[in-house]
C-alpha cells in the first residue's frame, strides 16, 4: 500500500513539475509550487520522515510561497517569451539525467533493510540513542546531539539569510504612522477568524518547540509556525500593526541571540572540559546533560528561525507596501 501511495504521489509530483515548465502565468507557477511542496511533504510522511515533512510543509508550501507571492506582487505576473533556444539546455539536462540514471543502476533496492546505508552508521543511532541521549525521537537526537554542529551551521545559514535580506531590502521603520490601505480591511470575516486562530497557533508552535524530543517537531518547525502565525497577522491586519507588535529591531536582536544561545551551550561544555557541544559534560548525569543541552539549543534554533523568518517577511512586506503607496 505504501508503495502504491508513493507511486501515485510521485506521479502527481512529476505532472506538477511538467506543468510548471509550460505555465507562463507566474502566479499559477507559484501556486503549483505550493502544491509541489505539499506533495513532497506527503511523500516524506509516506516514507516515514515525519520531521522532514513537518518542515517541508511549513517552509516550502508556507514561507517560500508567501515570499514568492510577495515578490510577484512587485514584479508582475507574466513570464515573457524566452529568446534563447531550448535545445542546449535540454541536452544538458538529458545528460545529467542520464548520468543519474546510470548511477541508480548499481543502487541497492529501494527500501531493502540490508542496504549498506542502514548497516553502518545508522544502527547506533537507532539502537543506542534512546539510551545515550534519552529521547524517543531519534531524529532530534541525531540533529541536536550527534550532528549538533550541522545544526549550528544550519542556524547560522538562516542567520546569514537574514543578513542578506536586510542588506538588500532593509526593514520597515518602527513607529511609523499606520498606513490606511494596509491589511485586508474590507475582509471583515477574515479579520475575525484570523484573530481567533492566531493565539492557538502560537501556542501550538510553542508546543512543537518543547515536544520535539517526543514527537515530530523541534526548534526549527516551531520557529516557522510561530513566524507563520505572525505573518498571518501581518497579512490580515497590515504590516504596521505587526511591526508594532514585534518590531524588526527586536527581531534582529533575537536572531543574533538565538545563535549565541546555541553556541553558548557549546562553549559552556568547553568550559566544563568537554569538546564543543559535548552535552554529556553539562550535568553530572550524561543523559540529563544531553537533555538540557538539547532543550536549550532547540530553543536557540527556534528563536533564531522565528526571528529571521518574520523579519524576512517584514522586509518583503515593506517593499510591497511601499510600492503600493507610491
Amino acid at each position: 500500500m505504501s508503495d502504491f501511495i508513493d507511486l501515485v504521489l510521485l506521479a502527481m509530483l512529476a505532472l506538477t513539475g511538467l506543468r510548471i515548465i509550460f505555465l507562463k502565468d507566474l502566479f499559477a507557477v507559484v501556486m503549483l509550487f505550493g502544491i509541489y511542496s505539499f506533495l513532497t511533504a506527503l511523500i516524506f510522511i509516506n516514507l516515514d520522515a515525519v520531521d522532514v515533512a513537518f518542515t517541508e510543509a511549513a517552509v516550502g508550501a508556507g514561507i517560500s510561497s508567501v515570499l514568492m507571492l510577495g515578490t510577484l506582487a512587485l514584479t508582475g505576473r507574466e513570464e515573457k517569451e524566452s529568446s534563447h533556444s531550448s535545445i542546449l539546455p535540454l541536452i544538458v539536462v538529458f545528460i545529467t539525467g542520464a548520468a543519474l540514471i546510470y548511477g541508480t543502476l548499481d543502487m541497492e533496492p529501494f527500501g531493502n533493510p540490508d542496504n549498506p546505508i542502514h548497516k553502518h552508521v545508522a544502527p547506533r543511532y537507532i539502537e543506542d540513542s534512546p539510551k545515550e541521549i534519552g529521547l524517543p525521537n531519534m531524529v532530534t537526537s541525531v540533529l541536536a546531539s550527534y550532528r549538533g554542529f550541522d545544526t549550528l551551521g544550519e542556524v547560522v545559514v538562516v542567520f546569514a539569510a537574514l543578513i542578506a535580506v536586510l542588506s538588500l531590502l532593509g526593514v520597515p521603520k518602527e513607529g511609523q504612522e499606520k498606513a490606511p490601505a494596509s491589511g485586508l480591511k474590507s475582509h471583515q470575516v477574515l479579520r475575525v477568524v484570523a484573530k481567533l486562530i492566531i493565539s492557538p497557533i502560537i501556542l501550538f508552535a510553542l508546543y512543537v518547540q518543547f515536544h520535539g524530543d517526543f514527537g515530530p517537531g523541534g526548534g526549527f518547525q516551531a520557529g516557522v509556525i510561530a513566524a507563520a502565525a505572525l505573518i498571518l497577522y501581518a497579512l490580515v491586519f497590515g504590516l504596521p500593526n505587526a511591526v508594532a507588535v514585534i518590531g524588526p529591531r527586536f527581531l534582529k536582536f533575537m536572531a543574533a541571540a538565538g545563535v549565541l544561545l546555541y553556541a553558548s551551550v557549546g562553549f559552556f561544555s568547553m568550559y566544563k572540559g568537554g569538546n564543543f557541544l559535548d552535552y554529556n559534560k553539562l550535568a553530572a548525569d550524561p543523559v540529563a546533560g544531553q537533555h538540557y543541552g538539547i532543550l536549550i539549543i532547540e530553543l536557540g534554533v527556534g528563536i533564531t528561525v522565528f526571528a529571521v523568518m518574520l523579519n524576512i517577511y517584514y522586509a518583503f512586506g515593506n517593499q510591497v507596501e511601499r510600492s503600493n503607496i507610491q
Binding site: 510543509a57 485586508l184 486562530i197 501550538f204 509556525i225 497579512l235
Partner: peptide, 10 residues
C-alpha cells in the same frame, strides 16, 4: 494552518 495562510497570502 499553512493552507489557510497560503489562501490569505493569495
Amino acid at each position: 494552518l499553512i493552507n489557510f495562510i497560503g489562501m490569505v497570502a493569495v
